[in-house]
Amino acid sequence: MSLLELRHVSKSFGSYKALDNVSFNVEPGRIVGLIGPNGAGKSTAMRAMTGLMRFDSGEVIFDEQPVKFSKTKALSKMGNLIEYPSIYPNFTAEDHMKYYAMDSKDPEDIHELMKLTGIDGPNFGKRKAKHFSLGMKQRLGIAIALVRKPKLVILDEPMNGLDPQSVREIRSLIQHLAEKGIAFVISSHLLDELQRLADDVVIINKGKIIRRATMAEFLSEDKAQVKVKTSDNHAMVLAAEAAGWQVKMSEDGEVLITAENGVNAQAVLAKATEANVEVQDIQTGTVNLEDHLMEVLSENSTRA
């Protein structure tokens, strides 16, 4: 049984379809990366999941209960940080934790959580939240999302404003909590970070889910890429195309070769030899999440 399930959720603002028949699941203990360009519908989907927004059709089920606009008991077991940390300027970090912990009969140990999220140091102490930096507010927002011992945490751009050290600490914390069974839905523009963190990927564009897969599956779709520098790029391109490979020219004047069924350096060298092309340099690699996402988005917009 999924912890969270979106079933055919649609939402329009006037003629603009913000969510179009969106369906996906989140299993306990999984970290789901919700990815898409700006305005793709990520935040709208997150608002639908948290009962903050009415949607036109479909349903959202969390912990076996439908998430309603006004009242859903199960929301006591969901934490969220959507768009920006929600902070009362005159509260201290500890005040925030006490305030949000009141919602739960069995909250996290506040001081332990403050330590884990790094908001217990001298920088925080008795200082009011209005004096916090963006990174400090972000850490506090994450701590708030975790204080009620949630089963699911929804984080929209959680790494915003964090320095590399903090990013690493928050990543470790999320992974540690996921191992304990807490599920996460995370959106982030830091795709390298998501690649390291997420177990599953949901790609959304123009309000539609265009790909759902585990991160491993998604990345395995990455075609191996061979980058060659030759004495005659034109001849190399013709030879590669004749072999049925996809060819692009890089900005540095290299030939980038990929293929649906994979391609390797030996095969490229063999083709170059057949075409009497001298290979000056050859490198192999895979497309990363960012490149692959761009490819998926561009395929999607071509189809549309």
Partner: peptide, 17 residues
């Protein structure tokens, strides 16, 4: 103004409460 309306409304309570 503070954006605290989101955590306020995304909890187990009804809007009437």
């Amino acid at each position: 103004g503070y954006g605290t309306i989101r955590p306020l409304l995304s909890r187990q309570y009804s809007r009437f409460e």
